[in-house]
Design a protein around this nucleic acid. Structure first.
Lengths: 256, 256
DNA sequence: CAGTGGTCTAGACCACGGT
DNA sequence: CCGTGGTCTAGACCACTGG
């Protein structure tokens, strides 16, 4: 009986992977396994079929199976034990939670409608601090954008961003309205790689208090972010001021 | 001339990698390349020798070279471009960026002497909030520890931590003085896996103001952390209150 | 002992980038 | 066009865990 079921599976599984597809085989296998785990077909702690079994079932070489499994191990979806096997992780996190996300992605994850109100968008000369963060020379042109960020129509943050004109000469307001990250990755085909953030507590300034409809003397979260492309060039510097009473910065991370 | 230099290198390089070593070849190559980059032999933006070149020079197969390079790419030390080559990243070498670190590890990274002043250490019954965070039942025993954390002798934070007695029945003050993380990983041979933190801004309370030698009405950074073992069980809940004027929470992260 | 993941080889064909 | 990284194969031997 077990064998029968196994063979059924073999057929179903093999059909999920096509050598005709333009997608790499390891990627197809990776997506298939991920989907099976997400759908609960295999549960945390379950042992996976061995590499040689998967190799035979899908009629692909063991090295290709390993490439798929290794990627899932790196994403913390599977873990391996020498001499024992490969298992489904206990992690409940969808990976990526410590990922670099934009305001809109952040709000979407929290189930809030995101919006923004433009204060201004202009081209200015970089000051010393901006120039250093963006690895350009003081006086070089940068786009400066200031917006009030809304969550469910309520003002949540004031955001000021700087982007070097030399990197994206054609930036305009519409690109920001949709999503700068989307524009960079899809329209410009460049890859966003990593970023540095600092988070600190401060008291709200008079100007920001007006924008955020807060009283004086209340605390705010002050976040600075510098984000880099894959070749290391910084492409944005963002200063955000969040209302202390309505926003928590949340991060999930791994040891090592 | 270029060729001569190339051949010199070939000899030197090859000698760095031994098939006799118990260490895997890909790992030896990885360490060698990392060291060359750290020492400035190759600089950010430089193109690396091609995979086929490295393969010939070190007399190992291209797949093995790829394993070494792939690991370095995953660590953000190198990046690849299709049809062009493999390059040294511009990324600074701080690694372990988004890692889960203890207060002492954090201070060490900032070049500050860390210390702490015990306020109390006792066994109490878990309240609802603590029980939920630690995935135990309300009323279950937990260790509660409250300390003032010092950086270069100055008070920087007030920290309250909770650990389930059921997980570590033998915890004592001395273990905390040295390092709980060290104890768990070295003495107990358990693996710390992941954690969740929230960071928010608030005004200092009267009690904390005294501990931190702050005036009333000043902002503080309020950090909550829940940390898990590899099997998913939470083993600590920590509340930290940092002086807003002297501490920035810093995090580096990758997209995707 | 048989089965597992870990490492390694020597080929192969592809799509891509720059000349 | 040639050289690059990206993918893939069909083997191989090893060290390790379990019964």
């Amino acid at each position: 009986m077990c064998y029968d079921k196994g063979n059924e599976w073999t057929g179903r599984r093999r059909s999920m992977i096509s050598k005709q597809s333009p997608l790499p085989l390891y990627y197809q296998l990776e997506e298939y396994l991920k989907q099976q785990i997400e759908s609960g077909e295999w549960k945390p702690g379950d042992i996976m079929p061995s590499e040689r079994e998967l190799s035979e079932e899908f009629r692909i070489s063991r090295m290709t199976v390993r490439q798929a499994l290794t990627n899932l191990v790196n994403k913390n979806i599977l873990f391996r034990e020498k001499g024992r096997g490969t298992f489904v992780s206990h992690r409940k996190f969808e990976q990526n939670l410590q990922g670099l996300t934009s305001f809109s992605e952040d709000m979407e994850r929290r189930g809030l409608a995101s919006g923004s109100k433009l204060l201004y968008f202009e081209q200015v000369k970089a000051g010393d601090q901006v120039a250093e963060a963006l690895a350009i020379s003081p006086g070089d042109p940068v786009y400066k954008l200031k917006r009030i960020r809304l969550a469910d129509q309520e003002p949540l943050a004031v955001e000021t961003s700087y982007n070097p004109v030399s990197l994206f000469p054609e930036l305009d307001q519409k690109i920001f309205e949709k999503s700068l990250y989307h524009y960079i990755e899809e329209n410009r085909q460049m890859r966003i790689s990593h970023g540095t953030q600092t988070v600190e507590a401060a008291l709200v300034t008079d100007e920001d208090a007006q924008h955020l409809m807060m009283e004086e003397g209340q605390p705010v979260l002050l976040i600075q972010r510098v984000t880099h492309l894959e070749d290391g060039r910084p492409f944005e510097l963002v200063w955000s001021i969040y209302r202390g009473d309505s926003y928590k910065y949340r991060i999930e991370m791994n040891r090592r």
